[in-house]
Design a protein around this nucleic acid. Structure first.
Lengths: 131, 131
DNA sequence: TAAAGCATTAAATTTTACTTTAATACGCAA
DNA sequence: TTGCGTATTAAAGTAAAATTTAATGCTTTA
């Protein structure tokens, strides 16, 4: 079992955020000791991981909450959960595509500046240098 | 020359956001007609593009402003600008790496749910099904 | 037994990047 | 000449996701 501090270190999420997430209903299975201190199990760490993953994919907290609720609801919701996961996957793939495009723009700029530096040219693209 | 509305359509950014960006100092070279209406040139569209690109890379508006100011400052800042672009590129590559990892987690989940559905199993990962 | 360290909570505040609102103005068609 | 469409501005408002604050309490250590 792990304290919230240990989880924060292990999973690279701040204690504050973990408490915020807990209050948001993301970790319904975390137990408490006799002093009301949270005790995260290894399984709970997996919940932290999936929350982190959904967050990283841009999923809103309220949608994460909804996913968690489906998990709690039990086996009858597996198909819906499967759908959420595949949709999230598609979203991530689109984000990667988008980043790839930006990478192209950045590489164009990089080459542009590189040739200016190398050949000691003027920045012809900058209107300040027009004329 | 393009009106702000045309730029909004062409570049897929709202008029409001373009005005906000303009007020933020992102388009210092956009001229006005005799009625004070903004006239975006093709070159200005490239500025919109680079702003969009930096935004997409997660660059904060104040850092975008700084980059624009370096552009205005002229050729003496080309090396610094080059550095900003390569650093941004690295950031984008890291983001792509991060997304790739999340994709792995999502695919694991996807397969997990798939096998539950296919084989009519219980969700053994869910503490609600422990025992 | 007192102080230090770590935990708890609710509630207020912050941050960032817009987005909306409200007041104003130009130009053209009816 | 009225009114519609499109433009302008400053300033107020919004939203999401934390983050900070403040008050409280257990446990261990000096």
């Amino acid at each position: 079992m792990y304290t919230i501090k240990e989880v924060a270190d292990k999973m690279d999420v701040s204690e504050h955020t973990l408490r915020f997430w807990a209050k948001s209903g993301f970790f319904p299975f975390v137990t408490r000791d006799k002093n009301n201190i949270r005790q995260f199990s290894d399984n709970d760490l997996e919940w932290v991981k999936i929350v982190k993953c959904l967050r990283a994919a841009g999923t809103e907290n309220k949608s994460i909450k909804k996913y968690i609720e489906l998990c709690i609801a039990g086996d009858s919701t597996v198909k819906e959960r499967y759908q959420i996961i595949t949709e999230t996957k598609q979203k991530v793939l689109q984000q990667m595509e988008h980043l790839k495009k930006q990478l192209g723009t950045l590489e164009y700029k990089e080459n542009f500046y590189q040739s200016i530096i190398k050949n000691n040219l003027k920045d012809s693209w900058n209107p300040m240098n027009k004329n």
